[in-house]
Amino acid sequence: MIRRETAKRVFAGEYNASRIEMKDEGEGSPSYVLTPLGEKVNRIFIVGVLTDVEPVGESGELYRARISDPTGVFSLYSGQYQAEVTDALSSIEPPAYVAVVGKSRVYEPEPGQIYVSVRPEAVRVVDENLRNYWVLETCKLTKKRLGAMREAALMESPSVEEMVKLSYSPELAANACKAVECYDELDLGYYNSMLADAINYLSPNAQIENLKRDERIVIRQPIDRKKNDAAPIGHPETFEESGTEPTKEQLPAAAPVTPDNEAEETRILSIISELGGERGAAWDEVVERGMDGGLDRFAVEEVLTSLMDKGLIYEPTLGRLRRA
């Protein structure tokens, strides 16, 4: 019997950063998106704000919708094969709180270049309370994954067995190890701040003390694993320099969490004009260039979201940005 896929709860900030598509062993395995924090997503459940629905393509049968959560924006594509959902989606007047059950989709315009989206199976207009419940639940599950990833990243060679000994479930353990193995570069500090911001979104006064926003557990894979025996797979280069805990002074200065909005927006806009060719500027390049200015990835993406909300930029295709 085929087990029904569980609908995973993942923030847009984590889901959109996914660069790995995978299948389980054995025939007939569905395909999964493996997120940077090791969630294997085939079915997904999202509650957020529907910000826009528009027809794309010539035939007018394909609709794109965007759903915003506290960390980013999900892209949904719904076509003639999901007529019921497409009808429902296109009849909702944004902005509106919506709950969506959907399937993960991968778009790979060039080998190695992966963009993820969602194909909805069901959509329903809900209220703010349900959205907040979803954010809370997603915070809890994200925190669980982040904990497992931290553990796996600190292991010399991440092993499912060792993780299970630390009382992680076999599934959580296996997925964390897989993510550490698959992602060349993982910045867990970034996701830690994303999570903290999502918690603050629910409770603005929640005191998150001692949050290591700058915590840099960056995992870099050796380029050729076989030749480079000295650096075992997944060896974490904790704090970049050495494995020792740095003192406070050694930590890099805290990245501005709330950037000076207007100045940054102008700067990012000019980056987009500069990089944008006919197809628009590649999202990743914009983010990278934006980070040169001293913002962290999270802050750049916040600026992008804000620009989109203001209608100054848009995504002509997934992963591309263009000025309006």
Binding site: Y133, L136, K143, N192, I199, N200, L202, A206
Partner: peptide, 17 residues
């Protein structure tokens, strides 16, 4: 299910590092 979301979020905040 009814949940006190703010107090749950505060609890979560305290467990953050």
């Amino acid at each position: 299910l009814t949940v006190d979301i703010i107090s749950e979020a505060d609890k979560l905040a305290q467990e953050m590092i």
